[in-house]
Design a protein around this nucleic acid. Structure first.
Lengths: 204, 204
DNA sequence: TGTACATCAGTGAACGCGCGTTCACTGATGTAC
DNA sequence: TGTACATCAGTGAACGCGCGTTCACTGATGTAC
């Protein structure tokens, strides 16, 4: 009974690792149940003893990716960094770097869509919320007078803009921008947005 | 012979219109050959007399969308607008509005991926290039000293950032931002980026 | 320790569905004489 | 004007592939007595 439980756990984590590797190598659309089963050494039906369906599996991998991203963003800001502007620039660049180094896994976070009726589990939503603090907190120190709602919107705008630049920058379609140039552009964007906010305030 | 040609032309444009409506209603993944055939009143095999395959059809619809976008952006700038900053803000907002009003068609532009080996036809690439002038030209008047390469990168950055805000803003996931607020944020972003550029120059 | 029984992970063939694309055939239209 | 023939758009059934998911069955593991 002990052994059985252990085995089950082992197989389960093997499954997650295999799925992660498969997405990283071949993209989200390259993830196939039969390949996974072969990879972890079991019949393809057995996958459904470990996981309810593919959606759950993808969300689990996504969760791992988000955690690693969280760590990367934390690591990017030196302990005791006093300037929130600097922090935001560093976080944005770390985001860019993470996306570049984990291209397919990062893309999978945004590509995956659940069927409309199925609800995203709480733990998955929580993972996403957690990350927001990397933007929210520096903004809050930078603009202590602003309301949480204003800060929330600003944080979202900042993220959206940076995300857009990373997404199109890494696409390499049409005009190919080399990574260092992209990083420079992102840093410039973040500084400009912060300056703009400082100058004109949060209201209309 | 005349009649046959006419009929063929008619059917072909019916096909494009039906495809456009179908994408607008149900999204790119809701586009099915059998539905199209029924819609335009022919057998499903006949679709392949009008168009080589689905990729071509989607690109054709995309082309129409890009042209309408082009017109919308042109219309957004009053004749004789002298201030390029204003122009850029207007263009960005018009982009946002167009995306909001043509949500699925606009999404289809970015969702569609051809198989790696197939090449995108020239006329399709050309459509995309054309649009860039709405950003490039105001930037060129604003910063007459900068090289075309610098301006190209700046234009791309500006577009990416605005596009990112529109894309995530219209997604309505997690935090839902109302459209007027989104527009305000976008205007702020564009102004901030321009100011930032004016202040710090184009180099590193 | 041994026997009978229960449980449940594991198996892999088969189900089921979706859907783009092909193809042998038809029938209407146009051409040649 | 009429007849024989050629062309080619149009037909719709069938091909082919991919692939998530199910399910009747097996066999190993654990429990009861």
């Amino acid at each position: 009974m002990f052994k059985a439980l252990k085995r089950r756990e082992k197989l389960r984590s093997d499954l997650f690792l295999a799925a992660e590797r498969m997405i990283a190598d071949r993209g989200l659309s390259g993830l196939k149940t039969r390949d996974l089963a072969r990879e972890i050494g079991c019949a393809n039906g057995a996958v459904y003893n470990l996981v309810a369906d593919m959606d759950e599996l993808i969300l689990r991998v996504g969760s791992r990716t988000l955690h690693r991203l969280d760590q990367a963003l934390s690591a990017a800001v030196p302990r005791g960094e006093a300037m929130p502007q600097q922090t935001l620039v560093r976080v944005a660049l770390a985001y860019c770097d993470f996306a570049a180094e984990n291209l397919q896994l990062w893309r999978a976070l945004f590509e995956h869509r659940m069927e409309a009726d199925k609800i995203v589990p709480d733990w998955s939503v929580e993972d996403q919320m957690q990350l927001f603090r990397h933007i929210y907190q520096p903004l809050a120190t930078l603009f202590p007078k602003r309301s949480p709602e204003e800060l929330g919107i600003t944080a979202r705008s900042l993220f959206s803009a940076v995300h857009g630049m990373v997404a199109l920058g890494l696409e390499q379609k049409l005009v190919a921008v080399p990574l260092p140039a992209l990083r420079e552009e992102i840093a410039r964007l973040v500084r400009a947005m912060i300056d703009g906010l400082a100058a004109h305030g949060g209201g209309a």
